[in-house]
């Protein structure tokens, strides 16, 4: 007890003399607070109204594919923020949309400021983080958990996104058109010989397209046989020895980065003209332009092997590009 009293005495001796100074500082802080309160500005939220005067839903999308689908449905006005992964894929005025974070960590304060009415996620419902759930509950924001694992999922997801953005009619039309085009390319694919293909998503480490995903569906619809399915579902990582063992006729490489990387050059040396470089940036997204992508893959895998790699620049593809409007 006496020891505590001693400590208190020492403390008072050392710091007691600071009391006046502390009070001065506190007074200065009070003045500062008063000045800052002058800067107070009321929070306003963007309220978009459609031509008919209805309020447009406020959507935060953390799924790049969903963002692209919304833009393709001409429902971009309802987007109030996107994820960090979306930004490189957006163009024009959509590039100015605020970035909210990603599906695991949202900028809570920005969410509160934007006050969205819908949050789009693509995640197993059991894996949605508890803090995102509670934040959405607090902001009265509905979570729209979409599924885009196969081309078949696209129809349902488009309808859900259309309903969320208030453009059900356009979504239905898009779905009907998509179904018709997929039927056409399925018939076309049945008429050409099936080509064994490997689709590499990265070359170092080597990650390929396995079974049971939408990219596997794209290869099948383009008239290819994904030999990567043998190595598992999803997007398995493999070794170069396994790649050689798969014995594919065409190697598609999604390689938007440098072509001078040693891993890519190894593929070129080993497979020569059988390597086709896919340069479009949204190759790993399942959007309403999937049919266009399937056609391009079809041209790549059925083009005759050339001496040089990079069949993206094959004459047939150029013709296709000329034929199709941008």
């Amino acid at each position: 007890m006496s020891r505590t009293a001693d400590s208190l005495t020492i403390f008072t001796m050392i710091y007691g003399k600071y009391a006046a100074r502390m009070l001065t500082v506190m007074a200065l802080i009070g003045v500062g607070l008063t000045v800052l309160s002058g800067c107070h500005a009321k929070s306003h939220h963007y309220v978009f109204k459609s031509k008919s005067g209805h309020e447009v839903p406020r959507i935060v999308s953390t799924v790049p594919a969903a963002t692209q689908i919304l833009l393709q449905l001409r429902a971009g006005r309802s987007l109030v923020a996107v994820s960090t992964y979306d930004k490189p894929l957006l163009a024009g005025r959509w590039r100015k949309l605020p970035v909210i974070g990603n599906y695991l960590r949202l900028n809570t304060e920005l969410m509160t400021e934007l006050h969205p009415s819908r949050l789009i996620l693509q995640i197993d419902p059991a894996l949605i983080p508890a803090d995102i759930r509670s934040l959405c509950h607090r902001l009265d924001c509905r979570i729209i958990d979409i599924k885009l694992n196969s081309v078949a999922d696209l129809e349902h997801t488009t309808l859900r996104l259309g309903a969320a953005a208030g453009c059900v009619g356009r979504a239905r039309l898009a779905v009907v058109k998509l179904a018709r085009e997929i039927r056409v390319i399925t018939r076309q694919a049945a008429r050409v010989p099936i080509v064994p293909v490997i689709y590499c998503l990265s070359t170092n480490p080597l990650r390929i397209v396995g079974g049971k995903n939408f990219m596997d569906d794209e290869l099948r619809l383009a008239g290819g046989r994904n030999v990567g399915r043998q190595l598992g579902d999803g997007f398995p990582k493999i070794t170069h020895a396994e790649l050689l063992r798969l014995n594919a006729k065409k190697i598609l490489v999604w390689h938007p980065e440098s072509v001078f990387h040693h891993a890519y050059r190894w593929l070129q040396r080993r497979y020569g003209g059988r390597v086709c470089r896919i340069a479009w940036p949204d190759a790993d997204l399942l959007t309403l332009s999937v049919v266009h992508k399937i056609r391009r893959i079809n041209l790549l895998i059925h083009a005759p092997a050339t001496d040089r790699a990079g069949a993206e620049s094959a004459p047939a593809l150029h013709q296709e590009r000329k034929r199709r409007p941008a």
């Binding site: 929070s43 306003h44 939220h45 109030v80 100015k96 605020p98 920005l110 400021e113």
Partner: peptide, 10 residues
């Protein structure tokens, strides 16, 4: 007192 605003862009 520092935070984001979306009044005229972020």
């Amino acid at each position: 007192c520092t935070g984001p605003t979306v009044q005229h862009g972020l």
